[in-house]
């Protein structure tokens, strides 16, 4: 359960967002313009804030700048209907932690919120990631499944590391493209799927229980056998 602040002026979109988040089991406060949003953000602790980029009374960028000026570090996800090229950069510069362009898939939003939450938890410096019998050594940069070494290319290693850091969470294709490759363009074809299937061939092939799962209509998730 997360406490979430939603600041969105398109009331229909707001309603949908709030309902969806509540259904997912979160506690949600909402505001339809910047000033109320700022007052809420500063008066209560939130786990994460979803803020529309264009808002009446106080623009989304300004709102986040104000929040940051008050020393408030609540993770912020920008929603934007603006044209893309450097709006993302502006959003992140203003103090946003992630940026999602409208229209978005709800699963994408949820996955990103999970990732933001995960990032916020003061992660003990881990040198080893473990999911089931799959083990990733971040120091020697080696992988083993059930004790058998797996040979990974550097990019495959980073991909697996990201998935394992977000174990038991849905990770979308866009999140992988943005985080593992640091790309913000549309690759036209589902290139990520091909990378995943190659990774899957290395870590799951020949084992009874697969670890890397496809989540229909959303993306991928790595998790141990329940």
């Amino acid at each position: 359960m997360m406490r979430i602040l939603v600041v969105e002026d398109d009331l229909e979109a707001q309603k949908y967002l709030v309902n969806g988040l509540k259904e997912a089991g979160h506690v949600v406060d909402d505001a339809a313009e910047g000033e109320t949003g700022l007052a809420l953000a500063l008066s209560r602790p939130y786990d994460v804030a979803i803020i529309d980029r264009m808002l009446p009374k106080m623009d989304g960028l300004k709102l986040v700048e104000e929040i940051r000026e008050h020393g408030n570090a609540t993770p912020v996800l920008f929603l934007s209907a603006l044209s893309e090229v450097d709006d993302r950069v502006k959003g992140l510069k203003a103090g946003g932690d992630d940026y999602l362009t409208k229209p978005y898939a709800f699963v994408e939003l949820l996955a990103r919120l999970d990732a933001l939450m995960r990032r916020r938890q003061p992660a003990a410096v881990k040198t080893r990631l473990l999911v089931g019998d799959l083990e990733l050594d971040l120091l020697s940069r080696g992988a083993r499944r059930n004790g058998t070494p797996i040979d990974l290319q550097p990019r495959e290693f980073r991909l697996l590391e990201y998935l394992m850091r977000h174990a038991n969470q849905v990770v979308t294709r866009t999140m992988l493209l943005e985080s593992v490759w640091e790309y913000h363009f549309d690759p036209q074809t589902n290139v990520i799927d091909v990378h995943i299937s190659r990774l899957r061939a290395k870590i799951d092939k020949g084992f009874e229980h697969p670890l890397l799962h496809t989540v229909r209509g959303a993306g991928y998730m790595i998790r141990a056998q329940a």
Partner: peptide
């Protein structure tokens, strides 16, 4: 471009939401 984007994405967003 921003207002074209905004004015088209907002209804598209609602459509997808629905």
């Amino acid at each position: 471009t921003d207002s074209v984007a905004h004015d088209l994405r907002t209804p598209l967003n609602r459509l997808r939401n629905r």
